[in-house]
Design a protein around this nucleic acid. Structure first.
Lengths: 206, 206
DNA sequence: TCGCTTGTGTCGCGTAGGCGACAGGTCAGC
DNA sequence: GCTGACCTGTCGCCTACGCGACACAAGCGA
């Protein structure tokens, strides 16, 4: 396990990790995570099997890094939340998470049911970190941002997972309907949770 | 110049050469070969500039390898000439060369006029080598295959270049018309050139 | 004219990757 | 049981690559 002795800024390291991630994503389109071997990944990536272990613990570690990278990219690309009011920000976050989840569902051969435990923690933790950074940078920043971020991240992630699962059986609920409901619930829930009422207002005193 | 001290079978070598070739082809779509620098190529390929010189003399050498690789791939992919009669083989060769030339013309910002000397020798030499292998493997193999291969390769390449140039100004002559004409000229020319008449026949005594 | 900038080609050193080989571990079928 | 086939995780050695640095050359404005 010398996975952390490599320099992440080295172009060779970026290349190798990208190759392994790409190979894994291609394999996930037609095989289950369970049936994919490290040898498969290394062969498809044209990377030596030993090199794999220099970067990742095992295939689950690689999968974890892919999910986190994907979530991170989805947020930083499509959701610039600088100076956005709480309600609009929540709506944007919801749409991004929902889109990400359904994209994974579509490109992963049987959805993400197979690696749920891994998937849940990775997505939720990244979502939590992002929400927390956002809350702390809001003009009306307050004390208990960590608890609020926990509520928001788990609620959005959970609702998104439910929605993307139900999407297969009864695709009648549109994205906007689901998003509206979640945002409303979150806002009313937050009103009773948060002591400082200013936290919910738009950045009025900017 | 340690360009030949590297092992071509090493996966790292394959990767690096591919990255440099891809970067060069992307750059050729919007810039002239003259205005492309080695630094441009290395930067876009995410490869160190020093590494470039471990594989190629300069950008012209890289361009040369790209052309040769492309010609080789075009032949081996779309023209399996095993046991094909001479006339049909010539027709197939013509179509392949014509397609290759117009593809280059379209994807190279101003056609290949800018690097003609390099381009001509590379394409013609690869074409020559391919034709020679083909002729030597024909059942009715004969002595002067080298001269015949010279005639065939130069004729096809020259005609293809003329056609792809005229294609811009007056695109009335179709591929099939041009190919038919060249094949007919070649066949009649070969009849008077070749001593052994059997060489022109289909592989009858198989 | 003198700098200043930008590209070229090369060197030495440190690091990442390829590769053969090894000892387990699992599972199929004889 | 016991093979044989396949996967995993690790080691040591060698090669390819990244990088800072250098000298040199061509263009270009002060």
């Amino acid at each position: 396990m010398q996975a952390h002795s490599v320099n992440p800024d080295d172009p060779r390291v970026r290349r190798t990790r990208q190759l392994l991630q790409d190979a894994m994503m291609e394999l996930m389109r037609k095989k289950s995570l369970q049936s994919i071997t490290v040898q498969d990944i290394a062969r498809r990536a044209a990377v030596n099997r030993v090199t794999f272990y220099a970067h990742f613990e095992d295939k689950y570690d690689l999968m974890d890094s892919i999910v986190r990278t994907g979530v991170h990219a989805a947020f930083t690309n499509s959701a610039p939340l600088e100076g956005v009011p709480l309600e609009d920000g929540l709506r944007l976050l919801c749409r991004t998470v929902f889109a990400f989840l359904s994209e994974v569902q579509d490109s992963c051969e049987g959805g993400h049911k197979q690696f749920d435990p891994l998937f849940e923690t990775a997505v939720q933790q990244e979502l939590y970190a992002f929400v927390l950074r956002w809350l702390d940078n809001l003009p009306a920043a307050k004390a208990n941002t960590q608890s609020v971020a926990t509520v928001i991240s788990w609620t959005i992630f959970g609702a998104g997972t439910d929605w993307s699962r139900s999407r297969e059986s009864s695709p009648k609920t549109t994205v906007e309907m689901a998003v509206d409901e979640i945002v409303n619930v979150l806002l009313s829930g937050l009103r009773s949770l948060v002591a400082d009422k200013d936290a919910l207002a738009a950045p009025a005193e900017k």
